[in-house]
Simulated assay, not measured.
Amino acid sequence: MKIVLAPDSFKESMTAHQAVEAMERGVRAVVPDAHCVGVPMADGGEGTTAALVAATGGELVAADVHDPLGRPVRARYGFVPAQALAIVEVAAAVGIDLVAPADRDPLRASSAGLGELVRDALDRGARRLVVGLGGSVTNDGGAGMMQALGASLRDAGGAELPPGAGPLARLATLDLSGLDPRVRELTVEIASDVTNPLLGPQGASAVFGPQKGATPDAVPLLDGALGVWAAAIARATGRDVAARPGAGAAGGLGAAFLAFFESTMARGVDVVMRAARLEDRMTGADLVLTGEGCVDAQTVRGKTPFGVAQAASRHGVPVIAFAGRIGEGAEVLYDYGFAALVPIVRSVTDLPTALADGPANLQAAVETVFRVLTLRR
């Protein structure tokens, strides 16, 4: 019996890798000789690097970079030498958790640290990059990232612009002659579920800026500065990316990746599934197990269990989803090929206890399901 184990992390309870291990223990308690294929999953956000490192046999490496305020920080990313593949979550270098709420100011926060992280990956021999967009505290459209990779941004007087989105309003010249030539050889898969454009009422500044500390007065300043940046990008590259879906992701980092790299953008879970070769591993499977902390009506909007179920349906394999909580509207998932939705919490308890007991509860839930399946057989 071949079982594919493809869960996301259960937030604050267990990583995707730990969830795979718990599922496998539950399966083997009933079917000791089952062929279990573990594929830790993610949807492009937190946990993407860890999931893909586990799935590809890569390694976690670290680089000394600068955080959004220019302070030293050690950032980790994944590297798979055999595939010349680097796996980066932008939050590792420019994440909102790196800056205290009182210090968040998207007018001066810079994405330079992400550029330093990309450069470190290039130094290690990366020729492919999977980048998870999400959780950034910057709103500079990737300008800082490009400066760190060798681009020059100058004002009308010829002076290099300081970090942050605010100074982009003074941008007169974008010079790419000093850009690291390896950037043009790097192919990038962008994992993002955000479809917002760079500018306007649905753009990066208006929609996401307030979450990053932008005041109502700062939002139009940010949007105007990004408008100047977008125009400079179009002149320098011939690529007008401002209106592209996803250009506004991660404070406009989506626009920079689309403009300066040979890149494609896709739903986060699809990028992760492709990199982890999930569908190849489903060949010949009898059952797929997936799950995450909460499964509800929103799961159909590109969450990991939904993406896994879509892949499994293409192979005619039934899917069972496990979750810490089965939320409102989750029953809609039965219309999309799920065979069962199984809650893992075994008794009334408080949240800290439920989170701490997550791995044991998941193992027990999987074991129970397989006892029922064995009874039916």
Score class of each variant (00 low, 15 high):
residue 13 S to E: 07
residue 31 V to Y: 09
residue 35 H to Y: 06
residue 43 D to V: 04
residue 52 L to A: 08
residue 62 A to K: 09
residue 69 L to R: 11
residue 70 G to R: 01
residue 73 V to E: 06
residue 74 R to W: 00
residue 76 R to T: 10
residue 78 G to L: 05
residue 81 P to V: 03
residue 83 Q to P: 06
residue 87 I to A: 01
residue 90 V to E: 14
residue 108 R to T: 11
residue 108 R to W: 09
residue 111 S to P: 04
residue 113 G to D: 10
residue 113 G to T: 13
residue 116 E to T: 12
residue 124 R to T: 07
residue 125 G to P: 01
residue 129 L to K: 03
residue 130 V to H: 02
residue 131 V to G: 04
residue 134 G to I: 02
residue 147 Q to W: 00
residue 169 A to D: 06
residue 173 T to F: 14
residue 177 S to K: 15
residue 181 P to S: 11
residue 196 N to Q: 15
residue 197 P to Q: 14
residue 198 L to V: 10
residue 208 F to I: 05
residue 209 G to H: 03
residue 210 P to K: 10
residue 219 V to H: 08
residue 223 D to F: 09
residue 223 D to I: 07
residue 224 G to P: 11
residue 235 R to C: 07
residue 237 T to K: 14
residue 244 R to Y: 14
residue 272 V to W: 01
residue 273 M to S: 13
residue 274 R to A: 15
residue 280 D to G: 09
residue 283 T to V: 15
residue 289 L to N: 02
residue 292 E to G: 02
residue 305 P to I: 08
residue 311 A to W: 01
residue 312 A to H: 05
residue 319 V to P: 06
residue 341 L to K: 02
residue 345 V to I: 07
residue 357 D to T: 13
residue 357 D to E: 13
residue 359 P to A: 13
residue 363 Q to H: 07
residue 364 A to N: 11
residue 367 E to T: 00
residue 377 R to D: 00
